[in-house]
Amino acid sequence: MRVSGISRVLRGLIPQSILRRKYSSGEPALYLTFDDGPHPDVTPRLLDLLDKYNAKASFFLIGVNAKQYPELVTEIAKRGHTVANHSYQHLALPKLSYEAQLAEINQSGQVIESILRKPCIHFRAPRGQWSFRVLLSLRNMKVKAVHWSRDSMDYQKVEPAVIVKNLLDNPLTAGDIVLFHDDNDCCITALDQLLPVWQQQGFQLKSLEA
Rank of each mutant, 00 (worst) to 15 (best):
114 S>A: 13
160 P>D: 04
168 L>G: 05
84 A>F: 12
202 G>D: 07
20 R>H: 07
57 A>W: 08
107 Q>A: 10
122 H>D: 05
147 H>W: 11
76 I>E: 04
55 A>I: 09
124 R>W: 14
175 G>T: 11
110 Q>N: 13
63 G>H: 14
209 E>G: 00
68 Q>C: 02
24 S>Y: 14
14 I>Q: 02
65 N>M: 07
138 L>V: 04
132 F>M: 15
201 Q>T: 00
92 A>V: 12
12 G>I: 04
149 S>K: 08
148 W>E: 13
72 L>A: 07
107 Q>T: 14
41 D>V: 15
196 P>K: 02
138 L>D: 03
44 P>G: 09
150 R>Y: 09
146 V>L: 01
193 Q>H: 05
81 H>G: 04
120 C>K: 08
154 D>A: 10
31 Y>R: 09
181 H>M: 02
146 V>R: 00
84 A>M: 09
194 L>K: 05
95 K>S: 10
137 S>E: 15
168 L>A: 06
83 V>H: 06
198 W>L: 07
187 C>M: 00
161 A>V: 02
128 G>R: 04
141 M>N: 06
203 F>P: 01
50 L>S: 10
26 G>L: 14
126 P>R: 04
54 N>Q: 15
150 R>K: 14
98 Y>V: 15
184 N>E: 12
91 L>D: 02
150 R>P: 00
